[in-house]
Design a protein around this nucleic acid. Sequence first.
DNA 1: CGGTCACTTGATCGTCTTCAATACCAGTGG
DNA 2: CCACTGGTATTGAAGACGATCAAGTGACCG
Lengths: 247, 247
Amino acid sequence: MYAYAPSARPVVLDPHGAANTCANCDARPHSVCNAVPDADIARLTAIAVVTHAEPGTTFIQEGDPASHFFNISAGTVRMYKLLPDGRRQITGFSGVGHFLGLAVSDTYAFSAEAIDHVRFCKFSRARVRTLLDDYPAMEKRLLAVASTELVAAQDQMLLLGRKTARERLASFLMLQSRQGVMCQSYRHRFALPMSRGDIADYLGLTIETVSRTLTKLRSDGFIEIPSATEIAIRAPAALESLATGMA
Amino acid sequence: MYAYAPSARPVVLDPHGAANTCANCDARPHSVCNAVPDADIARLTAIAVVTHAEPGTTFIQEGDPASHFFNISAGTVRMYKLLPDGRRQITGFSGVGHFLGLAVSDTYAFSAEAIDHVRFCKFSRARVRTLLDDYPAMEKRLLAVASTELVAAQDQMLLLGRKTARERLASFLMLQSRQGVMCQSYRHRFALPMSRGDIADYLGLTIETVSRTLTKLRSDGFIEIPSATEIAIRAPAALESLATGMA
DNA sequence: CGGTCACTTGATCGTCTTCAATACCAGTGG
DNA sequence: CCACTGGTATTGAAGACGATCAAGTGACCG
């Protein structure tokens, strides 16, 4: 088990780097928001509440009434579910442009915490509903988001149910190398905003196994570990083979 | 590992029990199809291709071009993903009224096989797209389906990542008791259309562990096992506690 | 009846967990 | 500048849960 104390992780993105209107939001190109045409962007701005969350802050609580949708515009978030005795399963990490809060139920199905400094837009569900009626493209976009997440969830089930610790770490690192924050100067090198405990709870392992397996992957020449929060992939093809269970 | 030989399982529902038009389809009340109003039901019938699949037949192949949507109207289906060496993860079981084939990608993200005799409607994706433009309610319905599946997938991640074998079986049995085919005469008694191998690959376990754990749950008084394909729950509340990790 | 196949049960093994100690890193204050 | 502190990460040794290997049981069917 892992102690979930909030801790200062390296800030990867400046949370104050973008203006507070939808028109020049740097997350908009990557998010469902761009289904609203430029001309009507004021309607979006009107109902968006820009919010900041410090590292370790829980801003969605599993079981609470699902009153809002969220759109991440800076930082990284972990979504998770807990068992009564504290066992935790992280269902995913969300970064810039990600949309949270989809649920038919009237309560949230998971909790969400800021890993580093996070900025997000809150939208009242009721107001979004009226927006959806006016912009069918947005509804289509939401369906696309949900479908994509569903595919990712199925991949994760395969990982959790059938892959070895080594394969899980390989899969995780390849995923991060694709969608993580890359280092400008070196390809295949990226930052890990989340802790070993987060990684463990995402992969269904323990901290110790994550640490040991990373060390092993390094000594086997697959990766380098410049610091605890940075990874460089030495052999992308070989690591990908590992990740897909070819080895 | 499990040998995936097609095998004759008890047929739970008569696949020929319903008429071949959407108007009197017994799956329609439970499916996305009822977003199309009665008056226009002919449009739906026009593009629906009713198909049957014998036990063990694969009718969706992971990686194939995603040309159709599917709607199950009789029988039970297993969806799964494979690793190159044959390890299998079943991502879910689908019964009457379930909708399959959601994906943004142009290829299927999973395979689907008939467990017993299955009847389903095939819809060309292209034709459904035009239908969706005319019936926004159907799009909303699809979003609801996707959201529901997403929540289920997150629950399954928690199960696969953090629950013990005993808790997994308890969760599975409670799920089946809710959505499975109930015996008419006895409450808390239901049929299991899937084999032990299917259950194992769904829960991230082996056949042997599934069998042993079921035996243990029986000897502990939680359940009865009238036959290999039938389960009766003796202590629903206690089993539910187990399933949610309270014990 | 004999054969097949799914399921059950038993014995042993291995991967990952648990428990425990140590190393590391950043921040703080002497 | 360096010792001290709190927290994270790494490493080591022992243990457990589920996997694997193997044999036995039972149901269905030709």
